[in-house]
Simulated assay, not measured.
Amino acid sequence: MKVIIVMKGCEFSIDVRPQEHILEIKNKIQHSHGIPVSSQTLTVCDWELIDGLDLDDYPLISEGTKIYLSAKHTPLALQQHDCKVKITVKFTARKVDIEVDKTDTVRSLKEKIHIVDGTPIKRMTLFFSGSEMEDEYRSLTEYGIAEFSEIIVFLKNMSRVVAEPPSRRLDLVVQTSSSLLNAAKIPVEMNDTNTVNEVGKLLQERNILPCDDYIFIHKQRLMRDNCSLRWHGVQNGDYLYIFKGTVNRCG
Rank of each mutant, 00 (worst) to 15 (best):
V162K: 09
M1L: 12
N157S: 08
C227D: 12
K112L: 13
L109D: 11
D15P: 08
E136G: 01
I186T: 01
A183L: 11
S228G: 02
R123C: 02
F148R: 12
P59K: 08
T103R: 15
L155W: 00
T195M: 11
N194T: 00
R206M: 06
L23I: 10
A184C: 07
S149G: 06
D212T: 04
R94Q: 13
K156V: 00
N194H: 13
T246N: 13
L203H: 05
S139K: 08
E142Y: 04
N27D: 07
S139T: 12
L23W: 01
Q220P: 00
I5K: 09
T195H: 07
K26L: 03
M1T: 07
L109P: 11
N248W: 02
K219F: 03
K28S: 09
Y58A: 06
P166F: 00
P165A: 07
M124C: 08
D117S: 15
I186H: 06
M158F: 02
V3G: 09
A93L: 15
R230V: 00
L180E: 04
T119I: 11
I208C: 09
Y137V: 09
Q220A: 13
S178P: 01
S108H: 14
R224L: 13
G52P: 01
I4N: 15
E136T: 03
R168K: 11
K86Q: 15
T103G: 05
V106D: 13
V173H: 01
A183T: 01
Y214G: 08
T65K: 10
L240N: 02
I151V: 09
F127Y: 14
F148S: 12
V96F: 14
H218Q: 06
I121D: 03
R168A: 05
D56G: 12
S139Q: 05
S139D: 00
V174Y: 05
I50K: 13
S159L: 04
M1Y: 08
D192S: 02
E142G: 01
T41Q: 13
G237K: 05
L203C: 11
Y143Q: 04
L181R: 09
K156Y: 00
C10T: 09
L181I: 01
D15G: 08
G52I: 07
C45A: 12
N197M: 10
P166C: 02
K244E: 10
E205N: 14
L126K: 07
V234G: 06
L240R: 02
E111H: 12
C211Q: 14
E147D: 13
F12M: 09
L23M: 04
T74C: 09
T43G: 01
